[in-house]
Amino acid sequence: MAEVIKKATRESFGEALCELAKENEDIVVFDADLAAATKTSIFQKEYADRFFDCGIAEGNMIGVAAGMAAAGKIPVAASFAMFATGRAFEQIRNSVAYPELNVKIAGSHAGISTGEDGATHQCVEDMGIMRAIPGMVVLNPADHWEMKAATKAAIEYNGPVYIRLGRLAIDSFNDPEDYSFELGKGITLHEGSDVTVIATGLVVNEALKAVRELEAEGISARLINIHTIKPIDREIIAKAARETGRIITVEEHNVVGGLADAVCQVLAEECPVKVTKIGVQDCFGYSGPAWELLDKFGLTQPHIAKVIREVVAEGK
């Protein structure tokens, strides 16, 4: 077992940017007065000459990043997921995605685990908003190691990318010795034949703990980690449906527009099976400590395990 690193993915992202900037002088980073929170401050400390705080003006930040990309740079623009993808949606759509400019957009404090700040800051729509834009790559890494690898892949990829970052410190579960990230490829974390759980982001580890717990009860649940929401790995999803029948999706996002919808789209075309959606059930979040909220929204190990048991008991 690899050493467990407890770290928020926003921090892993900041560290990764710093490491990548050593090798790549074209990387420039923008923030909108949230550098301390998105952790682009880690980059700012090392590369002040390549860091620009745009102030609380997200639309302009995205536009400036687009202009920079048009001039050959690799701009990374960070804010909270809510403001990056919400406030600046149209700038991302028209100034970045339509001209296919090489801008990386990082949305931190995504999902309800943003916690005490409450609903205005808990973005549960970002993946849906970004997924709807033609050509946009959407990444939602699940732990420290995956975030580092995903950040590297995003920089190496030539084109617009949205990458989702979390505020909450979470345990790593990947082993850096045998981990490899491939854009658009899901990862089977646990084999199983009774049912398949497809999870993304911060809640993947909760799902992993759940399927391991159920193994002792004789339930064989497959677990797939989807770090790339778009383009999604159609093959791994269709194969799972064919082999295990029912599917359960788990995401810290509205069940409308995010992983659940992306999975259902594949299944409707490739292999229709019944899908159970664990996530934010088309409602807003509210204030509270992150883990209490995750528990309330059914996104922790016991709740996920309970749903898996019910689905398996129902049968195919």
Binding site: D49, G59, A66, G67, M68, A71, K73
Partner: peptide
């Protein structure tokens, strides 16, 4: 409104 931001980005790139 968006072009002027992009122009700023290009001007900043020239400076860098």
């Amino acid at each position: 409104g968006q072009g002027v931001s992009a122009a700023c980005g290009m001007a900043l790139a020239a400076k860098l």
